[in-house]
Design a protein around this nucleic acid. Structure first.
Lengths: 249, 249
DNA sequence: TGTACATCAGTGAACGCGCGTTCACTGATGTAC
DNA sequence: TGTACATCAGTGAACGCGCGTTCACTGATGTAC
């Protein structure tokens, strides 16, 4: 972000940010479908047409919010990962990242819905959103890669290693990953899963998916009247997932 | 469903169903937020006010669609479970049910979004929706209960039983379930998880959550450009989850 | 440093649209005697 | 079986609302010489 040189440019950057802030608040109040350029303009006491100097359309504003949301969540995940001590406690890092994702989602439920909820009808995400969307998966992949590098994911013998973590299903387990899926995993390419056995990649992707399932279920009320101790539940489930992947020693 | 006696009652039942059918189609075309009473009426060539003879409001129509969706998905899950042979192949039944859920979701993406997607802004689900929502979880609970009853989930020794499925984390594992969560599980009550250790309930709920995470991620495009062999991926992930719970021998 | 011109932010009116819901009404269907 | 009344389905007009987007415009800010 280079500093704007002229007063005009500074004002523009500021107002652009303000419009997004107000839009975010409206999103939180009304949901995605209820986000309206006119309402945002009204709150800012400017004419609705003025907003078009900053965003060419409602979709463009939505895209900006989506990119910001991915970046905000991605940054939170990265911070949690980097902040965990000791760094070689991979299970702890996984839990820290998972908690950060959940905390962010609970704090920004409508932004979460914007990026992980049902697609907005009539809106097609442009390619600008791809890169920021990969930040969270990248953090997780880093953990799995680190685990593989330290040999902790060493494929166990066919009988499972007693006393250890959930064995990663034995040497024959890799045979369980069918060919097409194997190709997909290969296509993910370096360096995301370098040195990680295919079977573990499957488990890691499963855990990643499950994490967002947990958060989505909590936000959409599927646990209502079933699980009330949400923190405990989330941690217990995540620990189980860490074991499933093999991150926990 | 008792047969309507008079011609009027028969006509009413039929038109009610027709309205829901058209509304479902509009849902599929426009998304939840785009569902409009007027548009439905237009397609049926009746006045918009006439629809109010059948549904008191847009929300009531929405509720009816939600109930139908839960019932349709629940029935699909139950059919898959009951249809699996042999019945004591619990891992196979789990996979069959999971596949049925996915197939239904892929076939009815907007109805899926209606019940598992982001909440519709301004809509509060009435209590009529609770019972149909429990059908799928009930099927899964039945599987876990059956596994526990046949001793297949027998809590393994602290070292893990070599050669078996992923051990369910050892006798000390139950100590990992914190007190509040334990209370929640106890409150779920009979007969849903009778005879199932708390640790396994946690894993079962995790798997249930993960399944919907898998489906939601697929529908919302999170796997785009990453995993192209969706069937293989889904099956592999589900098999992993079955192992996680301990359903697979 | 001062002037001439180009760029940009913001305005207000307008276009054309669709929505949920209400209301007084007409005419057909069902029911009680 | 026939009549009198009540119930119900459906109509069409209206209320009041908000939306995204365009357009010709004014006046301020920035830039080049």
């Amino acid at each position: 972000v280079n500093a704007p040189r002229t007063a005009r440019a500074r004002a523009r950057a500021e107002l652009t940010a303000t419009i997004k802030d107000v839009a975010r608040r409206h999103l939180a109040a009304e949901g995605t479908a209820g986000l309206s350029l006119r309402a945002v303009a009204r709150e800012l006491e400017m004419s609705s047409s003025a907003v078009y100097r900053y965003f060419a359309s409602r979709d463009e504003l939505l895209t900006a919010l989506i990119v910001d949301a991915y970046d905000s969540l991605g940054a939170a995940a990265e911070r949690a990962d980097e902040g965990h001590d000791p760094a070689d406690d991979l299970g702890g890092r996984w839990l820290a990242v998972a908690r950060a994702v959940r905390r962010w989602a609970l704090g920004h439920p409508h932004e979460y819905a914007l990026i992980y909820g049902s697609p907005v009808p009539g809106y097609a995400a442009p390619s600008d959103t791809i890169a920021p969307a990969t930040r969270v998966p990248t953090v997780f992949a880093g953990l799995v890669r680190a685990a593989a590098a330290t040999g902790r994911l060493a494929v166990a013998g066919p009988a499972g290693s007693p006393g250890g973590p959930e064995p990663t299903a034995g040497a024959d387990a890799d045979a369980d990953v069918p060919g097409g899926l194997r190709d997909d995993i290969a296509a993910i390419g370096s360096p995301l899963f370098d040195g990680v056995p295919d079977e573990v990649v499957v488990r890691a992707l499963t855990a990643w998916t499950a994490l967002f399932g947990l958060v989505s279920f909590e936000l959409s009320g599927q646990y209502d009247n079933v699980i009330e101790h949400r923190d405990e539940w989330f941690d217990a489930a995540c620990r189980g997932l860490a074991r499933h992947v093999g991150l926990t020693a």
